[in-house]
């Protein structure tokens, strides 16, 4: 399903190149749930960004379901994301200009789906926010915002869901609730889930854990 081949990422830093990822090879099967763990600065989020096509590797390539992401231009990758990929971010990343409902409708509309409104309503109901459809992100608590983000991520029924520290900004009780929702929906839809986390409890819920240390995968 997802295959990374010799992924390398370097960024210029103070006149020299800083190597963030040093040749990552991995494969994730369809429907698998994988946690990427590691210390801060080990390159977890960078890896996630590359796998999701949010950034381009310095060398190497990412192939998802037969599509070579590095062969696509940014618009091509955007179209690919709209069709196949969903996101849950640590800081929610909802559009402040749009209501909860509109935020969830957004990826559906980007895919050109006709029933965006009813789908979005359905998913917001699913995350227990049916009463807050017309609220703006600033009127919602952190946990509620993340639930909107989860509804948004699943609404487009993506093949793969990427989550970057989904509970990082939340208290542990809210976090647990979010984890429940995430895995419930994941199971219902058979989505491939790749998440980056510090949270050991969350990591343990996944079928497989990838440990990153200083830009390299270590076997656990």
């Amino acid at each position: 399903m997802i295959r990374a081949e010799n992924l390398q990422k370097t960024v210029p830093m103070g006149g020299r190149e800083l190597e963030i990822l040093k040749g990552i090879n991995l494969e994730i099967k369809s429907g698998e749930t994988v946690a990427v763990v590691g210390a801060s600065g080990s390159g977890k989020s960078t890896l996630l960004g590359l796998l999701a096509g949010l950034d381009e590797p310095s060398t190497g390539r990412v192939v998802i379901g037969g599509t070579d992401l590095s062969a696509l231009d940014e618009d091509g990758r955007a179209a690919f994301r709209a069709e196949n990929v969903g996101f849950v971010f640590q800081s929610f990343q909802l559009l402040p200009a749009l209501t909860a409902l509109e935020n969830v409708m957004l990826p559906l509309e980007l895919k050109g789906q006709q029933d965006a409104l009813s789908q979005a309503e359905h998913f917001l109901q699913r995350v227990e926010l049916a009463q807050r459809l017309d609220h703006y992100p600033r009127q919602l608590s952190g946990g509620e915002q993340q639930r909107v983000a989860i509804a948004r991520a699943f609404a487009a029924r993506p093949e793969i869901l990427f989550a970057d520290e989904p509970t990082g900004n939340l208290d542990s009780r809210t976090g647990e609730h979010i984890i429940e929702l995430l895995f419930q929906l994941n199971q219902e839809h058979g989505t491939t889930l790749v998440l980056v986390t510090h949270d050991l409890k969350l990591a343990e819920r996944c079928q497989r854990r990838l440990q990153l240390e200083a830009g390299e995968l270590v076997v656990t």
């Binding site: 940014e74 955007a78 990929v85 980007l110």
Partner: peptide
């Protein structure tokens, strides 16, 4: 703020056009 919103849109798969 517009850059921020646009980048979220891009992450969600919106084309540059």
């Amino acid at each position: 703020s517009r850059m921020y919103e646009s980048s979220i849109l891009r992450a969600l798969g919106a084309r540059r056009g």
